[in-house]
């Protein structure tokens, strides 16, 4: 089971994020296709401290809110979601956090901040 699952629409940005965390020794699984990500997340059976999922909610083929409801920390699964989105509306942020997302980051994102937050979540089980 990976430490971090990255689901992002833009393949270049995805590649970049993947490098950012792989180079620091994390096991990363990445998807830029929403339906592939959905299938994988549906099939995955994470343990108690499941991976952190860095999720772009606008990705086609995947309803982020449904997914968080079903497989989020407060749902039946044990994934811990961090949202990374261009959509910065109050509604989207509040909804995601209420569904149990650990954090909501709006693009463009400050890299050191993103990295520090993800590393904090990864090092604190059941955050």
């Amino acid at each position: 089971m990976p430490d971090l699952v990255i689901v992002q629409d833009d393949p270049l940005f995805l590649e970049f994020l993947e490098y950012l965390f792989v180079s620091r020794g994390y096991r990363v699984r990445s998807f830029h296709d929403g339906s592939e990500a959905r299938d994988w997340l549906d099939a995955a059976r994470p343990g108690r401290d499941g991976p952190v999922v860095l999720l772009d909610p606008e990705i086609p083929g995947l309803s982020a809110f449904d997914l968080m409801e079903a497989r989020g920390f407060y749902g039946t699964g044990q994934f811990r979601f961090v949202i990374l989105s261009v959509e910065g509306s109050e509604e989207a942020q509040v909804r995601s956090l209420r569904l149990g997302a650990l954090d909501y980051l709006v693009k463009p994102v400050r890299l050191p901040v993103l990295r520090a937050k993800i590393e904090n979540f990864l090092s604190s089980p059941h955050s």
């Binding site: 833009d10 463009p108 400050r110 890299l111």
Partner: peptide, 11 residues
């Protein structure tokens, strides 16, 4: 423009 849409900060 592509990259600036995703990333900002010191670098």
């Amino acid at each position: 423009q592509d990259v600036a849409g995703h990333v900002k900060g010191g670098l």
